[in-house]
Design a protein around this nucleic acid. Structure first.
Lengths: 244, 244
DNA sequence: ACCTGAACACCGTTCAAGT
DNA sequence: ACCTGAACACCGTTCAAGT
């Protein structure tokens, strides 16, 4: 159906790693992980596969770079005027990542995959640093910061994956199906589970229908923040000299 | 190096979906997601691709089935004598899933991918039900159970993904490299990050080196449980009639 | 109903050759 | 140094044919 009007320009700019990664993100956004192929990429960039391999080692590295670019962009919003309570900042950082997985539905699965492929990569430190500074500012004692920050990060990654699933699921229902429609379908499926094996899931299925993703996500963040404060009460010393 | 001794039997059992899924899990365990191909599968099962397609719709469904089988097995350990405090049960269920991602390093990434591919699938309800029952038994009021259970599940999925990354990463270092060696390498990499951009991550890098994965994971569970108790204190009514 | 296996379309990657 | 594009090995999937 769509007219094949790509390659309208005969490539004015030279090829670069940035342009390639940018095109990769666009392809991923448009058609998911299956949409990113070297054929589609060469088409869009009006070049041959060899040119891409000059700038990028392989497809895995390209996926890593795309993931990193999107995460970096999501975290870069911070400098703008944010509420200055560490607690609200953590909520804002978390929500920024959450929203990135809404804009880029491939991101959730990719974050997990990227970690497996390249665990020493750049994505984890980025997120970890952004959260950890605020955890320190919260007054969490030195020895408890690693645990608290990890817990926040793991929750965010897990919830982001689930959220991406809902976006993808809605898209799979049809081009004009929205999220509410999809959650309604899942909720109905849950209500039809075996009564003996799934009493709890059946009982809360209707909450899935009504729930607001963002609110739900932030409620989880609040839960963890409450746990941090309960288990690791602010250390007076850490608070008076926050740079420690 | 390994002698190609597969197919020693001329297939005594008939092919079945179970046998196929079982072989798929074995291939995934042995060589990761890249190890599962229809060629390897037909080889191992001494059959042709058409036979597999008779029992399974496509590769995605096969991956889903493998993921579901492994998760179901991990959760099935429950019936055995478990500590009967809901809190300890939640810890045990969580640890069971965590250990499953250690045994099956592909599981972490696959859980995220499976959710995206088939969000209405069987894996989420299984985990959700298992955790949710204990959250109810904990005395969490009706309206807060969904949030509490979701938070636990998301944390577990995120941490499982990260843990799988460490296992995969260690394997990538070489066949005889262990986990501690890998964490040491990541820790060093973190210490070499830019001092201006990554002060927090650099400061806690050494804790990564010393940390025990399981302890760290359970500390996160405890954090969330503490948050649940703090934010949603047990409802006396729910406790006296736990079936509500 | 269940299985065989050749064939197809497509993919990531390489590399000799160009500028 | 950077790019071209044909070629290669491999993959998921199909399907006419068998039992």
């Amino acid at each position: 159906m769509a007219t094949r009007a790509r390659r309208s320009h005969r490539r004015t700019e030279a090829l670069s790693r940035e342009r390639i990664v940018e095109a990769a993100v666009e392809l991923l956004d448009a058609a998911g992980e299956g949409g990113l192929t070297f054929r589609a990429l060469t088409d869009r960039l009006a070049t041959g596969p060899g040119a891409i391999y000059w700038h990028v080692a392989n497809k895995g590295e390209l996926l890593d770079a795309a993931t990193d670019a999107v995460v970096a962009a999501a975290l870069a919003v911070e400098p703008a005027a944010l509420p200055d309570s560490p607690r609200d900042e953590i909520r804002a950082v978390a929500l920024g990542l959450f929203e990135a997985t809404e804009e880029h539905p491939w991101l959730g699965a990719q974050l997990a995959a990227q970690l497996s492929r390249n665990p020493a990569g750049t994505v984890t430190p980025r997120i970890f640093e952004s959260l950890g500074r605020r955890v320190r500012a919260l007054g969490v004692p030195r020895g408890d910061r690693f645990t608290a920050t990890s817990a926040l990060m793991h929750y965010i990654l897990g919830a982001a994956g689930q959220n991406a699933a809902n976006t993808t699921g809605a898209a799979a229902l049809g081009p004009d199906a929205d999220r509410a429609e999809f959650l309604d379908a899942v909720s109905t499926a849950w209500e039809e589970l075996d009564a003996d094996d799934y009493p709890f899931t059946r009982a809360v299925a209707d909450e899935l229908r009504e729930h607001d993703d963002r609110e739900q996500f932030l409620a989880g963040i609040d839960l963890i923040l409450a746990g941090i404060t309960a288990l690791h009460p602010p250390d007076a010393q850490a608070r008076t000299s926050p740079a420690t």
